[in-house]
Write a protein that binds this DNA or RNA. Structure first.
Length: 418
RNA sequence: GGAGGAGUGCCCGAGUGGUUAAAGGGGACGGACUGUAAAUCCGUUGGCUUUGCCUACGUUGGUUCGAAUCCAACCUCCUCCA
């Protein structure tokens, strides 16, 4: 099915990672004959990456697994500018400390996918583009790099064209963003002999800019590879839920919730996700994807456990699976559900039901909790709540000393006294 | 610098003095049906100490018994001209 000779491209192609490439044969030959270095850039705007980044992370993972050296490039320099594409939001300028903290915390997640200590060429690298971007001198930069960019050509890029067609403002800052990213590629080529940049399909134009700049600044031939924009079968963006992004960091999203996210995959997405987000062999993927009807639930459990195992470890993933099995299939009170502590005194004094659900993080406000009661969406210890004025007390504690609060059928929190 | 246009709830978008917490749609959440899926149907969708009160239609003032709606200034964005 694929004509690629290199392990890396064959794997990516078989598993559905490839959207667009520059010079397929050239890159294929390079990967087959040399140990190559490639990078993907990430902006450290939060202390954790989320599921939307996962496909790119998996590409780096496969890159290393097939005998090459991946670089995860943190946008410590570009992060100082702030991403202009969300211009509605009050753009907090991030301090250097925040950026460094975020990078450190992101690295913990990355370390589950990429080995930074061992591997071809001494293992993967995590590099911060602040290294070379922060010391830049504006005039020198314009003369050395800026002169290679033609505004005419930049205006012809799709990413820009749609903006102009929609009559939305395109700030000068955004032009600089493209240029900085192009410059990153050249710097990485010079410093680390990095030859390939990967990214989402929206990054194509930026990556191509880097390749062009490389030509003009005499780097070796550079290459681009982009992945398709990932949406669920019903068209939603990946990684968004009611409670926000599906974070990779266990501090921001419990292992159990992460597992649940994958467990709730739509039928039509199962095969695709197994290929993209697990390392299961393709014949196993084919077997699981062939399951029909309700049997496909088995495939979803495997998907959830495998994806979770890579990130949080096999043991934690299996615990999450077991917690889910008990909670859903036996209706039992399962340990391992997310737990929220309340002071013992508060419960003895009587804790208002609405407040309890807000404290547990299941409802955003008392008003929302009230509405959910009307809609029959709240349960205490698996009993549907009828009365919004109900007060929880120590009598509601079940054998393990917890109260189980549920919103809908899937979201459960254990309330524990502390 | 000049002329015109626009800023509404999570998003899009109606509304041009009085049952307007603001039509409609999307999204989201809950319920029903299922398989912890999709599709479909129903409900909900500012906050609170909820027969009531408070906060909301770019910002700040003003007119009025009463304003998202009228007036003024300011801010932001867009279009055309220079």
């Amino acid at each position: 099915m694929t004509g690629f000779k290199s392990d890396f491209l064959r794997t990516l192609s078989e598993r559905g990672f490839i959207h667009q490439m520059s010079d397929e044969t050239g890159l294929d030959d390079l990967l087959r004959t040399e140990t190559v270095t490639a990078y993907i850039g990430y902006d450290p705007t939060a202390s954790s990456l989320h599921v939307g980044h996962l496909m790119q992370i998996m590409m780096l993972h496969w890159f290393q697994a097939t005998g090459h050296r991946p670089i995860s490039l943190m946008g410590g320099g570009t992060g100082m500018v702030g991403d202009p594409s969300f211009k509605e939001e009050a753009r907090k300028l991030m301090t250097v400390e925040m950026i460094e903290d975020n990078i450190a915390s992101i690295k913990r997640s990355f370390a589950n996918y990429i080995d930074y200590d061992k591997g071809p060429l001494g293992g993967g690298l995590m590099i911060n583009n602040a290294e070379w971007l922060r010391p830049l001198n504006y005039l020198e930069f314009l003369r050395d790099v800026g002169r290679h960019f033609s505004v005419n050509r930049m205006l012809s890029f799709d990413s820009v064209k749609t903006r102009l067609d929609r009559e939305q403002s395109l700030s000068f800052l955004e032009f600089n963003y493209m240029i900085l990213q192009a410059y990153d590629f050249v710097e990485l080529a010079r410093r680390y002999d990095c030859r390939l940049q990967m990214g989402g399909s929206d990054q194509w134009g930026n990556i191509i800019n880097g390749i062009d700049l490389g030509h003009r600044m005499d780097t070796p031939q550079l290459y681009a590879l982009t992945s398709p924009l990932l949406t669920t079968a019903s068209g939603a963006k990946m990684g968004k839920t009611a409670s926000g992004a599906v974070w990779l960091d266990a501090d921001l999203l419990s292992v159990y919730d992460f597992w649940q996210y994958w467990r709730n995959t739509e039928d039509a997405d199962v095969e695709r996700f197994l290929k993209l987000f697990t390392t299961l062999p393709l014949d196993e993927v084919a077997r699981l994807s062939a399951l029909g009807g309700s049997e496909i639930n088995e495939a979803k459990k495997v998907l959830a456990t495998e994806v979770t195992a890579i990130l949080h470890g096999r043991k934690a993933a299996e615990d999450a699976a077991e917690t889910a099995r008990r909670a859903f299939e036996e209706g039992a009170l399962a340990q391992g559900l997310p737990t929220v502590n309340v002071p013992a005194g508060e419960l003895e004094a009587g804790l208002g039901l609405l407040a309890a659900f807000v404290t547990a993080g299941l409802c955003a406000s008392n008003g929302e909790a009230r509405r959910q009661v009307k809609g029959g969406g709240l349960r205490v210890n698996d009993v549907v709540v009828q009365d919004e004025k109900r007060v929880l007390g120590t009598a509601d504690l079940v054998e393990d000393g917890v109260i189980k609060l549920s919103l809908g059928k899937k979201k459960h929190v254990l309330l524990k006294t502390a």
